[in-house]
Design a protein around this nucleic acid. Sequence first.
DNA 1: TTGACAGTGGGAAATTGTGGGATAGAATTG
DNA 2: CAATTCTATCCCACAATTTCCCACTGTCAA
Lengths: 146, 146
Amino acid sequence: MNDYIGKHIHTLDEKGRVSVPAQFRRQLPREGLFIRKGMEGSLILYPPEKWENVRDGLASLPRNIRKNRDIIREFSQYIRPVNIDGQGRITIPSDLIEISGMTHEIVFIGLLDSIELWAAQRYAGREKEQVSSLEEAIEGIEIDIY
Amino acid sequence: MNDYIGKHIHTLDEKGRVSVPAQFRRQLPREGLFIRKGMEGSLILYPPEKWENVRDGLASLPRNIRKNRDIIREFSQYIRPVNIDGQGRITIPSDLIEISGMTHEIVFIGLLDSIELWAAQRYAGREKEQVSSLEEAIEGIEIDIY
DNA sequence: TTGACAGTGGGAAATTGTGGGATAGAATTG
DNA sequence: CAATTCTATCCCACAATTTCCCACTGTCAA
């Protein structure tokens, strides 16, 4: 299983492209990736295997139920396939750039099996309201992360 | 398996034609597609394989039950074959344009194995009454889509 | 110092979306 | 039954966007 970890900052150019951090790129294929609207105004980049899991989850929802249809529509609305170009970049669809508030600097955060992308300003703002220290946060959970 | 995913907006011309989003077109054959009246005032575009499933499902309904006959009639009434022309467009039958309220802008939503088409205004209206955010909607379901 | 790699910018080429004319067949009318 | 109109389909054209490719810079290690 892949481990996408760490924080990387790259710049978005006028054509909506960003370099994928080399460390992540080494673990990723050039094709079959998907990017979508994530939580709290971020975007999420899925490697193919992860995307397949997510898709299968969605596909398992019975379509004859209205709420399920709404979930699929809502989800589908902001997800797109992306490829890595010859220079190691992805082009982020313009509507996703807009809803995530990206302008120049983009923060990549590894989430183990997927990758989160943030507009730098938005990420900085969110960081404040987040649990101030990691130590404090992990007191509450039982798993062993030491 | 195909993944029709994402939202795309295109315009209907005076002849009742719309470009099929290139992303979908790459996964579709030029012939053997079907379009029909869908749920909530939308239309649904089926690729051949999906249509075959749907048709077989219908065909399996016992005809000696009145309700089944009604379902088949209702279904049959508003379904048509469509082809993709040399410019990557489909012509939407005029009665389907009418019942779906299409005028100028059409929203395409990928539903994994089929594609939904909406009159833009109607889609916008529906979106409001729909679960307001994806985050909220998926809290209730068990599948892992993160 | 040099070579490899990483990140960035920009031009050229291909693709995409859209409008409109031309042609052929169906329908309508005298 | 012929002439005309209408409709649907095919094809050409063009603008705009997207994708592909080449080039430059800076960093790090040998």
